[in-house]
Design a protein around this nucleic acid. Structure first.
Length: 520
RNA sequence: GGCCCCAUCGUCUAGUCAGGCCUAGGACACCGGACUUUCGCUCCGAUAACGGGGGUUCGAAUCCCCCUGGGGUCACCA
């Protein structure tokens, strides 16, 4: 069998859609699984904007996830150019050929006429098929039109008596009746090709063996197959994978529905996390940093392996039980026949649980490396970080253990680096400002003041002993102390908290907490 | 509306092509419990699905038909 060659052809839009990323991933997986090639081709036809700038985030997303490409921007290849805007000769050549063979024709129909035809068809409740008036034109009439400066487009002449069939690797046999297909425009008045035409020329010339793309392209397929046939090209194998849907729905995930997603109970948390984290690290209001885009996950501190794991399981499964998979595992086992047919909703909860798993696999050093940039960007530590701060950070990360799910979670521990803390009022009321607790704290404060060994073991021993003497539940002090010294109801174990805060500040903060209650 | 696709727990899915091994398995979420006299973690447990109707068959989640529902797409966008 010949080499497997797959491609992903993004438009340089300035961001990378998570659903598009999943499509790219499946292409990458299939190529890699077969020892084939994965190609990146840039769909930059009629785009005015700065392509380089708009392409950056897309290539970054690939790099971040570790999906490499064998041919395309930056790496070149034997089938270039890899930017559609530079491939115009190829398209023109193909058009000339079709025209010469009578498989395509110049259509002089005015848009108004076409619109009227369509309305007429609607009115009569029959499907609209274009009327081939231009085919009836005599040479003189055409010349007259040309002389009068009439515009034309090029349409493919659809053989209306045929059927188009494909054997889709995911969907199986699908067919269309050509008598229902309007002659598609393949070249605009201005001489630029249309997607359905250009993509076929490109795929054929680049010898793409498998066209793996989202299901929304299924309805484009018959037109493309017609182009393959007209040009005498071999058809690739098509695989229409389901699109990625919004959480808990069957609707295609779309960047245009962000406002709706913010109210989606499953999606909500992700937006909230963004609101909490991004302002702290100077990314407030930056566009494209929402959970529809890959960049969000990078910037908020997800692990590539977790995102990849999650994306792989969206519309594909290895077997009846395997959930946790590295890219390597997925690559080894990925086949098209195990791709599911129905659309899969992105599941933030499940992604989070994958993240949680992979984060726990990380060494303390790797965690530190991932967390550090957040503290630096939020100006909580110096740049570069001082040895003393780094030492403290190491201890914090150790104490936090598996409480760190996202790298940005480290920001919740910023109080250990700061002199002033903010109290979670609700927690303060619940755990500190309640009957008996202030008195208990006051006494325990004295006890702590005389404590020489400020260690986790010693503190635990002391607290338990004290509670026993007072015949109180240790939980009372445990909870109140955490809130007093960190301001938060969650965080490392209390004894760790006390050690991290240090004796001096611990005593200080107990004092000021007691003052807070009195003055309230 | 035309064309096309899809249909198993709340969600992601296994099982469907080769009908019995399925009183439908796993994971996430949720709920309960154990541990830690601590938020978290971990561990146990519970709840929870074959959209409906007809066939075919000894036997149907699985094959066929119809219905219903959901979705995609209908550009001189990609």
């Amino acid at each position: 069998m010949s080499t497997v060659r797959t491609r992903f052809a993004p438009s340089p839009t300035g961001y990378m859609h998570i659903g598009g990323m999943r499509t790219a991933l499946f292409n990458w997986l299939w190529a890699r699984h077969n020892g084939g090639k994965f190609i990146l081709r840039i769909d930059d036809t009629d785009r005015e904007r700065n392509v380089e700038e708009a392409l950056g985030p897309i290539l970054n997303a690939f790099r971040w996830l570790g999906l490499d490409w064998d041919e395309g921007p930056e790496v070149g290849g034997d089938f270039g150019p890899y930017f559609q805007s530079e491939r115009n000769d190829l398209y023109t050549e193909a058009i000339e050929k079709l025209l010469a063979e009578g498989k395509a024709y110049r259509c002089y129909e005015k848009p108004e006429v076409i619109k009227a035809d369509r309305e007429q068809a609607d009115k009569e409740k029959r499907p609209y098929i274009n009327i081939r008036r231009s085919l009836e034109l005599s040479e003189e009439e055409i010349k007259a039109l040309e002389d009068a400066g009439a515009n034309h487009v090029i349409r493919l002449l659809v053989p209306r008596d045929q059927k188009i069939e494909i054997n889709d690797s995911v969907r199986g046999h699908v067919e269309w009746d050509c008598s229902l297909i309007t002659d598609p425009v393949i070249m605009r008045t201005n001489g630029t090709p249309l997607y359905n035409f250009a993509t076929v020329i490109d795929d054929a010339q680049m010898q793409i063996s498998h066209v793996i793309r989202a299901e929304e392209h299924l309805s484009n397929t018959p037109v493309q197959v017609l182009v393959y046939q007209a040009l005498g090209y071999d058809q690739p194998i098509f695989a229409h994978i389901p699109y990625v849907a919004a959480p808990g729905s069957k609707e295609k995930l779309s960047k245009r529905k962000l406002d709706k997603y913010k109210k989606n109970p499953k999606f909500k948390k992700m937006f909230e996390k963004a609101e909490q984290v991004f302002p702290l690290i100077g990314l407030d209001g930056v566009e494209g940093l929402d959970p529809v885009m890959v960049e969000y996950y990078e910037k908020i501190g997800y692990l590539p392996v977790a995102v990849l794991n999650s994306l792989s399981r969206l519309g594909w499964s290895l077997d009846d039980k395997t959930e946790i998979m590295s890219l390597e595992t997925v690559k080894e086992n990925f086949t098209l026949d195990r791709v599911v047919k129905n659309p899969a909703g992105l599941d933030p909860d499940k992604l989070f649980s994958f993240q949680s798993h992979w984060m726990n696999e990380l060494s303390p050093e790797a965690k530190l490396e991932g967390c550090l940039p957040y503290l630096v960007k939020a100006r909580i530590v110096g740049d570069p970080i001082s040895d003393q701060q780094k030492d403290l950070l190491e201890k914090i990360i150790e104490a936090l253990g598996d409480r760190i799910k996202l790298f940005s979670d480290i920001l919740d521990s910023r109080l250990f680096f700061q002199d002033d803390i903010t109290y979670d009022e609700k927690a303060f009321k619940k755990r500190v400002a309640k009957n008996g607790v202030p008195e208990l704290l006051k006494e325990f404060h004295n006890k702590l003041a005389s404590l020489e060994d400020w260690t986790v073991e010693k503190l635990e021993e002391e607290l338990k002993q004290f509670s026993e003497e007072k015949e109180k539940s240790p939980g009372l002090l445990i909870h109140s102390l955490r809130v007093c010294t960190t301001g938060q109801p969650v965080g490392p174990g209390v004894y760790d908290c006390l050690v991290l805060v240090g004796k001096e500040k611990t005593l200080e903060r107990i004092d000021s907490s007691l003052l807070r209650i009195e003055s309230a």
